Simulated scan of single mutants.
Amino acid sequence: MTIYSLYIYDRHCTCVYYHDWHRTRRPKLAVEGGILPAVSQAVVALAAETNSSTLTIYSSPRNTLTSASGVVVAVNEMNAQSAVSPLLQAPPSPVGISSTGLAFDEEVKLVYGVVLSLRNMIKKLSGRDEQFLNYRTSAYKLHLFETLSGYKFVMLSDPGTESLRFVLRQIYVGPFLEYVVRNPLVNMDSKEYGIDNEYFRTSVDRMIRGSSFFP
């Protein structure tokens, strides 16, 4: 089984988080203003990456209190860019990996459009008690977990993967509640920033890589 990518959409139908693992064709960078800042530095232009206002408290070079020791470390302003966690930096494009030819902001709209259309179709054809959980094509399988507050967790995997709804739920009840919902620095109703911070991204990455279905 192979996990390709994870999208999180908020109640405003906006992508607030993105993470990928085994994509063979990376999306093109989103156009300026096409997505919220702090969704993922892998899909934004360099100008947005180097804008310090888009960094969260966890990735900010001024967050000098180490979680392990509690020791305050002085950080020079000149070293601000190097202080950002490697998980929050745009990964280099692997040799031989091609682009999808589609900008990331267009990609997230298509993914959400598919989810919304299929969910509405199921409700109209089968009644309100039926839920849209996943669907499969010859190339991938899409998994959906929706919270009562309107957040949608969407994961793409290879077609042979069993339902990953329980994984999406674990991400929600674990890192999402811990580092996003209970974080007083995150505005859950904001249309200005995504939810990308070092603790949340690291926890999601560790959870996926440590699972039995991750190759």
Rank of each mutant, 00 (worst) to 15 (best):
C15N: 15
I35G: 04
N183T: 13
V204Q: 02
F214R: 02
E130S: 14
R136I: 14
G113C: 05
C15A: 06
A38K: 02
A74H: 10
N51Y: 05
Y58P: 00
F214W: 03
R25L: 09
D10M: 08
M78Q: 14
I195D: 09
T137Y: 00
C13L: 13
A68L: 09
G150A: 04
P86I: 03
M207F: 11
L87P: 00
R62I: 03
T24C: 10
I35R: 08
L6C: 04
R119N: 14
Q41Y: 11
S157L: 07
A90Q: 07
E146K: 03
P37K: 06
S149C: 11
T100F: 05
E130D: 11
R23Q: 08
G70A: 01
V154H: 00
S69T: 15
T66A: 11
I3M: 09
F214Y: 15
N79K: 10
A103N: 09
E77T: 13
Y18K: 10
V75P: 02
I8V: 11
G150Y: 08
V115C: 08
E192Y: 06
S93A: 13
F200S: 06
L88F: 08
E49I: 04
V44L: 03
S60C: 01
H19M: 10
Y199E: 10
G210I: 11
F214Q: 07
A139M: 11
G194W: 00
S53L: 12
K191G: 12
S98D: 15
V180S: 09
G70Q: 00
V73Y: 04
P159L: 08
I195S: 06
L144G: 03
D20T: 10
V73S: 13
E130K: 09
Y18F: 15
V75E: 05
L142A: 05
D129P: 02
L88A: 15
P61L: 00
R201Q: 02
M121P: 00
H19F: 04
V73G: 01
T202F: 07
R128L: 12
I171T: 01
T161C: 14
P184C: 13
V108Y: 06
S126Y: 13
I3S: 06
E162I: 13
T2F: 15
S211K: 05
Q89L: 12
L46H: 10
L36Q: 03
I8W: 07
V72T: 12
R201Y: 09
S126G: 07
S190G: 15
Y172P: 01
I35W: 14
F104L: 04
V114C: 02
G127S: 04
Y140K: 10
A90Y: 04
P92N: 01
K191P: 15
L6A: 03
D158L: 01
V115F: 09
A90E: 07
E146M: 06
A68P: 01
R119E: 13
L46I: 14
G194K: 00
S149P: 08
E198P: 00
S190W: 03
T66G: 06
A68N: 09
R201W: 05
V73A: 11
G127T: 00
T66K: 12
P61M: 01
D205W: 00
A45W: 04
E107M: 14
D158I: 02
S85C: 08
S126C: 11
Q131H: 13
L36R: 05
G127Q: 12
F153R: 03
T64F: 07
V73R: 14
N187Q: 12
T66P: 03
R23S: 09
Y17T: 05
I57Y: 15
F132R: 02
S163Q: 03
S211L: 00
